[in-house]
Amino acid sequence: MQALVIGAGPAGLMAAEVLAGGGARVVVAEAMPTPARKFLMAGKSGLNLTRDEPWPVFAAHYGGSAPGLRPPPEYLENGEMGPEAVMGWARGLGVDLFTGSTGRVFPVGMKASPLLRAWLARLSGLGVEFRMRCRWRGFDGDGWRFEVPGGVEMLHPRAVVLALGGASWPRLGSDAAWVPWLAGRGVEVAPFRPANMGFRVHWSVPMARHFGQAVKGVALHAGDAVSRGEWVVTAQGIEGGGVYEVSAAMRDGAEALLDLAPDLAAGELARRFAAAPAKLSVGNRLRRVLGDPLRAALLMEWGQPLPADPARLAARAKALRLRHEGPMDIERAISSAGGIAGAGLTEALELRALPGVFAAGEMLDWEAPTGGYLLTGCLATGRLAGRGAAAYLAAAR
């Protein structure tokens, strides 16, 4: 074995593809019974591969200290694995794509499984060996110790790519068990925090009738971030893509303001409130003007006491403070922020404390929202780490 990739998610599979494509003998070790479980789970509601939008807009969604993804993410921009490259790579696997009205790019069939099957077939054709139920358990001298169905196995690869995920969705394999082993070898790891997560809300009793309903046609502002996406009211709080897009700013303390009528100027909204029949109840008046019972309910929930003056009521509806009790636990988050700090990585994503060991994906200290950004970043760092490991092997030869 020349190269070992630990973790069979998108980042690990991309690193394996790069290494095997360059002629390396590659083993992929995966703790779970099947590869890419989180990838498949994320694709159940439609696999959003990337985002087709102007580069400055796309790049602004990345944060953190990891090389290649810190703003501006030069590695994505130079075409190695940016949106255009992701689309070309998927088409190369025989997957037809379409772009939605918001710029999100999906497979025509929407599902992740056909793409994954084609990808695994390509990797097998390149000679990549998969070892499932092969869980890394740390170091033993200069060897890598694995728990396997038959007991314990020691591996001694020439180069390693770590793609073990962050700390979200531990039941699918991303449990951050690797942190003490790397920290013990001098690798700095920034604390993990939830990313792309919902927020807890203690609703009043009348809101129970709206649990499970989608909030549409609103704008959510938090700091410099703005989202027009849909999100869902649940018994625990609020979740969904529209919240995830601004969740990092909310988590870090920015006040969240909800515009319930983003396509109407405040003056026009005030005029409509003034024109609503006075005989209507407050709730019916709000529903008539806002055009949606759920938006009216949110104004009733978070806007009390409601101003009687139409202009002040319109101002409140245009900048409604979203009252929450903090982010949901990291175990429920789509992804995580934090991870291996950028200061401990080379530009090729090699660990400075462990020459010949590279890292990719959500192990690294970076974050991006869902909607194509997160997956593109995982693929990009996987390719970058794979290229780094390939160059390391070539130099050793």
Results as ranks from 00 to 15, higher is better:
M207Y: 08
V243S: 00
S247H: 10
Q236W: 12
M207S: 01
E245K: 13
V226C: 11
M250E: 09
Y244S: 01
Q236T: 14
A235W: 00
H210F: 15
M250F: 03
V246F: 06
A214T: 13
V205N: 00
I238A: 12
T234D: 13
H210S: 08
L220I: 14
Q236N: 05
G223T: 13
S204L: 00
M197W: 01
H210C: 04
R200K: 15
A249Y: 04
A219I: 04
D252K: 11
E245C: 11
S227L: 08
H202G: 07
G242D: 05
A249Q: 14
V205A: 14
H210K: 02
E230F: 12
G223W: 05
M207I: 07
A225E: 14
H202W: 00
A222T: 10
E239A: 10
G237V: 09
W231M: 15
T234W: 15
V205C: 00
L220Q: 06
V201F: 07
V232S: 05
Y244H: 14
R209V: 13
L220F: 11
K216D: 02
W203Q: 03
K216A: 00
V233P: 03
F199H: 06
F199C: 11
S204Q: 13
F211P: 06
V243H: 01
G242V: 08
T234V: 12
P206Q: 09
S227P: 10
M250C: 01
F199Q: 12
D224I: 07
V233T: 05
V233W: 04
V226L: 15
G212E: 15
G241K: 01
A214V: 15
W231I: 10
A219P: 01
F211L: 09
R251T: 08
P206V: 10
A214G: 04
S204P: 00
W203P: 02
V226I: 15
A249L: 12
A235V: 03
I238Y: 02
G237T: 03
V232G: 09
A235D: 13
M250N: 05
V232H: 08
G212S: 10
S204R: 15
Q213F: 03
V218F: 02
I238W: 08
E245Y: 08
H210M: 10
H210G: 13
V232P: 03
E239Y: 05
V243T: 02
H202K: 05
S247F: 03
G198C: 06
A249W: 07
A219Y: 05
R209W: 05
G237F: 03
G229P: 04
V205H: 02
K216Q: 11
V215M: 07
K216H: 11
W203D: 00
V243E: 00
E230V: 14
V246D: 04
R251K: 07
G212R: 10
D224L: 13
G229E: 15
A235L: 05
F199K: 06
P206D: 11
